[in-house]
Amino acid sequence: MSPRRSYDQYCSAARALDVVGDRWTLLIVRELFAGPRRYTDLHADLPGVSTDVLASRLKDMERDGIATRRRLPPPGAAYVYELTPRGRRLLPVLRALGEWGADDLGERRPTDAVRAHWFALPLLGALEGEGLVEVRLEEGDFHLHVGRDEEPLYGDGPAPAEPDARLLLSAATCTAVARGETTLADAVREGRITVTGDGTLAKALREG
């Protein structure tokens, strides 16, 4: 494990960047808000990161108390990484960074990778209430645990149980919501989002 580099500044922002300022660290945190993840899953959902860098960052995150590694009980018996309470306190940081960076999304570049669940945090910030929401994009499906402040906040694939609402929309509409160009309610009224389901969240979105 390499020694942690430091800005050597007596400033809370500098101290925070000592811990999470390295390339890939906050994106690993983003992935871990989906709950415990295997190393192979993290590597698959962080295109561009080398195996050496990912392993190094995970060790650093364990050392700094952001993440922990544990072995699943049989029949899984695999090692997974998950956020600690200190790591989960980074949620407002990620949300603020996402809001700040939304204006820079622009048009998707040919070299840009995309995973459907990368839209999870912006949509969570736009949804009110509490419940399970399934989101369907052309890029894939994911689900959201709305109204929760602890992991998992979201997950890949269809909802694990009958959701309170299902949303069918495009990545372009997700981007517009993230950038504040439209609200979920307006996008539903305009026909850019199709809402199905009988739960409170579905009814609120249709009536909003």
Rank of each mutant, 00 (worst) to 15 (best):
A67F: 04
G48A: 02
R38W: 03
P3D: 12
L17I: 02
P152V: 07
H117M: 08
A202W: 03
T51L: 11
I193D: 05
H117R: 12
A178P: 13
P73R: 07
L94Y: 02
E128T: 10
D149C: 00
Y7G: 09
A185C: 12
R4E: 15
R148N: 08
V114R: 14
D156R: 15
P92M: 05
G35L: 06
V133W: 08
G65F: 04
S6D: 08
D52E: 10
L123A: 11
Y10Q: 12
R15S: 05
A176Q: 13
S2Y: 13
A178S: 12
R108G: 10
E150I: 00
C174L: 09
R148T: 14
L123P: 11
R88Y: 00
S56A: 15
R5D: 12
A77M: 08
E99V: 08
R38F: 00
V188T: 10
Y154Q: 11
L105P: 06
L168F: 04
L26R: 07
D41C: 01
E82K: 01
P36Q: 06
E62I: 07
T182V: 03
A16Y: 01
L32A: 07
R189F: 06
V135D: 06
V133R: 13
A13P: 00
G197R: 07
V146H: 12
A116W: 04
E107K: 03
D141S: 13
Y154F: 06
A185W: 02
S12Q: 13
A44V: 05
P73K: 04
P75F: 08
A126P: 08
L83V: 06
S56W: 06
G191V: 09
E130M: 00
G35N: 10
L58F: 09
V53C: 11
G35T: 09
A185V: 09
T182K: 02
A77H: 07
P152N: 07
S56G: 13
R189W: 06
A176D: 11
K59I: 10
D18E: 14
A176K: 09
E107D: 15
L26A: 05
M1Y: 12
G65I: 14
R88L: 12
Y39C: 01
T175K: 11
P73T: 04
A187G: 14
A204S: 10
V80R: 01
